[in-house]
Amino acid sequence: MTKLLGFQGLLLILLAPCMIGVLRKLEAWLELRQGPGIFQPYRDIVKLMRKPAMRARTTSRLFAITPYVLFSVYGLLCLLAPVFHRATLASVDLIVVIYLLGMARFAFSLAGLDAGSSFGGLGSSRQMFVHLLTEIGLVLVIIALMVKWNTVSLTAIFDKHWELGYVNFLAEPELILLALSLALLILLESARIPIDNPATHLELTMSHKAIALEYAGRDLALIEWAEMIKLGFLLTLLGNLFLPFPRWADPMHSIGPSGLALAFGGYCAKLILLLLLLAFWELSQPKLRLRSIIGPSLVAIVLSLTAIIYTITLRK
């Protein structure tokens, strides 16, 4: 059973489109629209899968394999991290997570350059710019977590949360700082408002989408799906690092069906809460000027630095 649970990441992979569907539904509702059903992303993916992947004649093999790289990297991430149960395929630490993310982004940027179109190049340079800014922040968050929990292993942190069953934010204000910092970085990393608008039609403002414009059919489906998985993974990470389950949701790592059901239910509730927050945030914030992106990433850096200093000086 525990072996099987090691594949819980597959569930995340499969449910990610639905999660995006929920997010879009929420946003549509706030915009006074009805919006597509929550399963629309599946329909989009299935339809795209059936269409041929047209690639420009100028592109090399690099361009062709990038969607697969993206998909497998993000898929792997899901399999390596605990989702709603502690079991994973292998125990990894956060540093691996960061550099897997970086690898995917690097591959994607290369593909943008490979396409040889002007927008692809533009998108690549913007992607790298953003990544440069987020990477520092992410590393700092990890250091802070390490200082805090004495470990960078995801499973270990997950376990600590399970033992406690709650986070006392009042007693541990550094966790608030870290949660905010990570939340900001997730927004930056997954190309959402305030730095990129996933729904835009304006070629000149796109960064992520500018590269995706070059793809079609199956390739595009993979890329879109990979993006959804990525967001799902990052939100799970945020939830698991800072919003542990209440104790009753999973009495002592039980793997009984009722315990698992409760754990999964708790996980879903957590995710929906995060999605709601994300929807509120995206609608109440305009996109920033490209240059002002430095702002949020600086904020994230300062927040994590404060958290580190706080932990070191007051805790130890």
């Binding site: 549509a28 629209r33 597509p36 629309q40 039609h201 989408k209 070059e214």
Partner: peptide
């Protein structure tokens, strides 16, 4: 969009 129809950029 509620009908599953979307304007695309490419």
């Amino acid at each position: 969009e509620r009908f599953g129809i979307k304007f695309e950029s490419s």
